[in-house]
Design a protein around this nucleic acid. Sequence first.
DNA 1: CTTATCATAGCAAACGGTTGCTAAGGTAAT
DNA 2: ATTACCTTAGCAACCGTTTGCTATGATAAG
Lengths: 341, 341
Amino acid sequence: MAKSVANLGDVAAAAGVSKSTVSRVLNNKLGNGFAVSSEVRERILEIASQLRYRPNLMARGLTNQRTRMVSVLGGAHALSDMGNIYQTVINSITNVLDNAPGGFDVTVDMSQHAPGTSELPAWKIDGAIILAKCTSQTVEEIKHSNAPYVVINGPADSSGSTVTPDDIGGMEIAVKHLVQLGHTRIAYASAPLSHLAGHSSLKDRHDTYVKELNLRGLAAIKGHEEPFTSAEDFLKSVVVIQKATAIIAYGHMSALNIMQAAHALGIAIPRELSLIAFCDEHAAGVMSPGLTFIDLGSREMGRIAAEMLLEKIKNPEQAQSRNVKIQEKLVFRDTTARPCR
Amino acid sequence: MAKSVANLGDVAAAAGVSKSTVSRVLNNKLGNGFAVSSEVRERILEIASQLRYRPNLMARGLTNQRTRMVSVLGGAHALSDMGNIYQTVINSITNVLDNAPGGFDVTVDMSQHAPGTSELPAWKIDGAIILAKCTSQTVEEIKHSNAPYVVINGPADSSGSTVTPDDIGGMEIAVKHLVQLGHTRIAYASAPLSHLAGHSSLKDRHDTYVKELNLRGLAAIKGHEEPFTSAEDFLKSVVVIQKATAIIAYGHMSALNIMQAAHALGIAIPRELSLIAFCDEHAAGVMSPGLTFIDLGSREMGRIAAEMLLEKIKNPEQAQSRNVKIQEKLVFRDTTARPCR
DNA sequence: CTTATCATAGCAAACGGTTGCTAAGGTAAT
DNA sequence: ATTACCTTAGCAACCGTTTGCTATGATAAG
């Protein structure tokens, strides 16, 4: 058998002291009736690094019941549409947690779990951040394991906090922007089928679109009620036939498709058609011409979720669950303009 | 304090048997001088699920020295350019490992580690898959921890296996494709600065581009030796001034930028300019017109890496380290065509 | 009736750390 | 010389499982 890994006992033996002394030195657990001579201390440190000692966290976790392990559930969402907000969210979460005092180990669960099986890692975790949604079974399991959790862009019951973008406010801003530019025929390109089916953002954005147009006495353009399929067909119906001058797209993928189809059909953006979509700067950044978009604030969502989780981990008793709404913001760039006469 | 989690002892007490009996029943460790009456067995199973018993894997790992935990290192790469191959790779890895007998817990490490700190999770892992690269320090640590590892698209020493796309072969195919179409003025758009600086794919693709053109007596188009910055400037220099009729792009992001810049400059693709890029179907799928690309085989890379790792985990002594090259393939779609006169 | 065998189940050690408590030796104060 | 206290460090229990070995009673075989 190859060389095996050094453990506390090995270090202790090599240094000629007891395991407890090594443990206390390495963890700097002085005081409280304990002290070491600096000579012994140096020796232990020296030998430990020489032996490449790394504490076995399983053993450690066994006694102190904490793993410093935080799990991001639902990371598979980040691998679906390219450039979706979960990539930014994960980035942001790890940023915060990496720099948190104490040092957490952030692991992202990328598995697409078979229905019925547990989504929770088999490991004991100190906390979880859930992306978009997980089964109610999983929520039950997390609650039962006593780990605090935060849901990003999805629902939770009273035991968990949530961070959600304000899709209603975002759509209001989008409509207002287009109306102020002078548009009266505004279409909505919804999400493709199966895209997080049943997610609140689908309903919120759609319903608000209808409501805001109504409020202003404008007619909704037909097509908003169906899932988005062919961009070319959509443009033919909405722009060519129904004479829409602006489109609000559910997400950046719809927007990308629409831009490409518009190009193919010879529809100039933004001269003949204004386009605006819900996404974040990461996705919008690669579109050309520069996409006018409703920024979902994904970076902020990740940051706030991570901070709320840290708070809950720090004092599990006090920290309350909160439901935070992230305000969506208009980023006005090159795909929206006044309608041409 | 809230309800705490049930452990083996709780189950044993509730069932009126000993811990060892519960353990053996739950793990189906019958035989070998042990058996239970089906009555006791049923009771234990019943109570365990009632109490929502989940074995504490730290305790378990402590005794049997295996964690069934596999770590993907360098997941942060997947969050850089949208649509990069590592997203597909991770997807593919988790797919294989999820369905592996025994059930592994795949965790993806998304942290961007400060230089000098360990990239290895503090946890004892059964194996690791490294994306693109990690510090030599990390490799040392993995080796020293006795865990098998596989590097995808990066170097390893004799202790680790590698899975690498054959960039030289890929570039040969790309050049050959364009030449066969009739192109003689073929440009190369390299990677933007800092994009995995020093990675072998940079050198391999570039050098092979030069070599293949030389071989055919064709002149390289100026611009191939510099990092890619502005697509518009690049097109002006390469297409407008140097009269290139085809471009081979290092990656899908360069290609996307070029397509957009071409559109802005009124250069028709593929009529006036053929474009081909290195990427995978995931990224190419969203481009329009359909991008002709050199498929890096990211799905296969992930699959093979995961399978090789499983093999090494299963029998650590026998399984040898291997270096597998993945053949790159041409996918001929709508952005390449014969040059116009 | 004794002995072997089988079915059933528990004891206790081990895994690698952490930590409350105790112990040994030295020094200072009384 | 006794007491008190500080410094330095070790003992041993404990965390929750797994597992080799042992124990008990019953049944079958001789």
